[in-house]
Design a binder for these strands. Sequence first.
DNA 1: CAATATGAGTGGCCAGACCACTTTCAAATT
DNA 2: AATTTGAAAGTGGTCTGGCCACTCATATTG
Lengths: 216, 216
Amino acid sequence: MNQSKRYLDIVKEIRDMIRHEKIRPGDRIPSERELAEKLQVGRSTLREALRSLELLGLIETRRGEGTFLSDHRNHKLVEVLSTFILQDNQSREDVWETRLMHEISAIQSICNNKALAELRIWDSFKKRLESESFQRADFVRELMVLSGNRLSLKIWFLLHQYSGSPYSHEVAEDEKELMQPILDALENQQEEKAIHAFKTWSEWIEKRRMLNGDNS
Amino acid sequence: MNQSKRYLDIVKEIRDMIRHEKIRPGDRIPSERELAEKLQVGRSTLREALRSLELLGLIETRRGEGTFLSDHRNHKLVEVLSTFILQDNQSREDVWETRLMHEISAIQSICNNKALAELRIWDSFKKRLESESFQRADFVRELMVLSGNRLSLKIWFLLHQYSGSPYSHEVAEDEKELMQPILDALENQQEEKAIHAFKTWSEWIEKRRMLNGDNS
DNA sequence: CAATATGAGTGGCCAGACCACTTTCAAATT
DNA sequence: AATTTGAAAGTGGTCTGGCCACTCATATTG
């Protein structure tokens, strides 16, 4: 018969097993060696099934501890799918534009979040801006987190990694006076100003990147 | 170093390789043994990555022949995955917001494209709006195409499929007076108006969807 | 010329071996 | 007695090398 794709059967068997044994999200499932023994398959074949489930975000594995059923809130698949979708859109500009789109949208969201405004979180940003070690990426990522849209955060992170990481640098000294207005505007919930300041900073980075020879 | 999750790196490396070698859907990718050699990794580890990609429908393997890049416009898997991912309300909301973000950004882009304005393409939209058979999805997708950002288009298409396809309906009769202002504003490159009109339409659709019991 | 056999190449699968890491618990130390 | 230490067991992560089943192009045979 068409006996190929043993690992697909395993995926199914594991799913059934989870159902029958009433394993709940967060619970541990049997070890790879146990499962392989139980299902009468080689460990590497079993692992092919487990890795697939992991990539789907259905299980979570921690070395030295075991494999756990994950609470399926993972957007990992978007990550993977998008990664492959990007393959034929190598246009740098598209990536740049799209990333910026997500960032600006996050800023809009932040400015319209009243609960956030009362938390006085921007002081800490300003303080850190003055200390020497300040990564661009950290700053922007925290903005994405503050927006509250986890999916957008995931997509952004992917684009960030993909775009040759223009943010993966320390903030330069003359760069800080470009970032200061962003923080000021965010603090006062001035959406237009914040976006404008952010775009200015963003374009500054892009120019800077063009000057230095850049390659992915 | 990047501890654990070697197979995830491999997924990434394979993607890079595909991009650089300009492998297109349907093409064959190197054999497992070749890839393992090239990426300096054991074959079983490599297979974990390949099996994962296969389960996602990104590649297709045929015993005795080889491994092939598959067309990622494979609708089936998106449906399967969305059953896991979109159970969470927060996720649904994130998808909705993110999709809207891409749409609005596309509108902005269109309004700022002067070359586009001279093409008088909106007349044909208006005509089609009057004819009976007009799918929401077609309308929005064409907007995405017109924006010129192919990456954003791809992401939008994914989100569109995820989100239980609120656009997969014919345009209702009383809906057309909501869409008319969008086209008017686009024709005159009135960014603010176009976005506002689009949001109005979008919220109308969302309300409509909430009324009808909807589940994918 | 047609049918067949062969061999190279491929994915499918397995067993066994290390390694790195976490947890546990008993022995050693204080 | 309480604390620290460390050895052992268990786990996932990885690699090697092997065998099998299948496909395909080529050579051989009728």
